[in-house]
């Protein structure tokens, strides 16, 4: 089911959380609302769910106006950052909650809950209380609970934000696979660009209550519409006046490009970060180990730098030539 948000505004006292925000979420997609904390993305998600009432604008779910529909009639599944587990109910009863409210027959509830607990791999924990589960298990339970009522849309508010790095990585891969299986229109909020780039079909970058850019991950990464999007989606450095990605700079020894001197080298895994001093300007370049060895880079060495792609907001549509070397180091940025 598609979701349309049109010109939504929301203020909390003097603070503007959403300022004329419009977003289209296609049916069956997995969309990320990405942005810094306090940028309005959670408020937007809560407006879609009906947990906040917008001051203006409208929300359509499946083409029908939902702006003034109470939460319980919206048919949305909502997953909270801190799980919102019903502490006094067992895992089974948590997942069954929405079905019990809907007075479904006992047999149907049993089958459906069993099926969902298998889906989230918690069958053997059915009789436990949430307090006896780990954070990752609790969040999987919350997801099963939200899916139990077969919602038209699934909304997740920083679903992995409270988990440690390892579990977070596992769960987001699992969410991607789950979505491919269940195919329910899903929107999730995150401030982690890596999470958005890895999981989402479509990313909406939200900053200071406004939408900065919307598009598939590759498009946002390669052709950021604003400097903010470019900075938020990955590392950047300045070469002359241009804002570029550190792995989109070619280090040369033939004197072509901007001359500079290697100031400092640091190695992180198979990636080498070179800080190059170009007439007082500190430029960061990342390259892979093989390339760094081939160039025989060392502090004090004279080099010259050429941007292989310019992600200049003034020049949207610039395509990035991907050579084997920059591609590998680009991947290194996101899989340290």
């Amino acid at each position: 089911m598609s979701i349309q948000v049109r010109a939504v505004r929301k203020r909390f006292g003097a603070f503007t959380a959403l300022d004329d925000v419009s977003v289209d979420v296609p049916t069956g997609g997995l969309t990320a609302l990405l942005g810094p904390s306090g940028g309005g993305k959670s408020t937007l998600l809560r407006v879609i769910a009906g947990l906040e009432t917008p001051d203006g604008g409208e929300v359509l779910i499946d083409g029908l106006p939902a702006t003034h529909l109470p939460v319980r009639e919206r048919d949305v599944g909502f997953v909270f950052q801190h799980y919102a587990a019903f502490k006094h109910l067992t895992v089974y009863r948590n997942v069954a909650f929405g079905l019990e409210i809907r007075r479904r027959p006992a047999g149907e509830i049993r089958d459906r809950v069993g099926e969902l607990l298998r889906l989230v791999r918690l069958e053997q924990f059915a009789d436990r209380l949430p307090a006896q589960l780990s954070g990752g298990q609790r969040q999987r339970m919350a997801l099963a609970r939200a899916l139990a009522v077969e919602p038209r849309v699934l909304l997740l508010d920083e679903p992995f934000g409270a988990l440690d790095a390892q579990v977070r990585k596992e769960l987001r891969e699992w969410l991607r696979r789950l979505h491919d299986e269940v195919r329910v229109t899903t929107v999730f909020v995150t401030h982690d660009q890596e999470e958005a780039l890895e999981v989402a079909d479509e990313i909406v970058v939200v900053n200071q209550g406004r939408v900065e850019q919307t598009g598939p991950p590759d498009e946002l990464y390669d052709r950021p519409a604003t400097e903010f999007v470019m900075r938020f989606l990955g590392p950047t450095t300045r070469l002359g006046d241009a804002l570029v990605r550190p792995h989109d700079i070619d280090v040369r020894l033939d004197g072509v490009g901007v001359p500079g001197r290697v100031d400092r080298l640091s190695r992180v895994g198979f990636e080498v970060r070179a800080h190059v001093d170009c007439d007082g300007q500190q430029v960061m370049v990342t390259l892979d180990r093989t390339r760094a060895a081939a160039l025989d880079l060392a502090p004090g060495r004279a080099v010259s730098l050429v941007a292989t792609s310019i992600g200049d907001p003034a020049r949207p549509g610039t395509t990035r030539p991907i050579s084997a070397g920059t591609g590998a180091s680009g991947a290194a940025e996101f899989h340290p």
Partner: peptide, 28 residues
Amino acid sequence: EIGDEQEQAARTLGATGWQVFARITLPA
């Protein structure tokens, strides 16, 4: 201390105000 997230979760799952109170708030 318990906050209102559990109550919000119950509402998204279709509970009415009274059901939220009886099934979530009161037991807590």
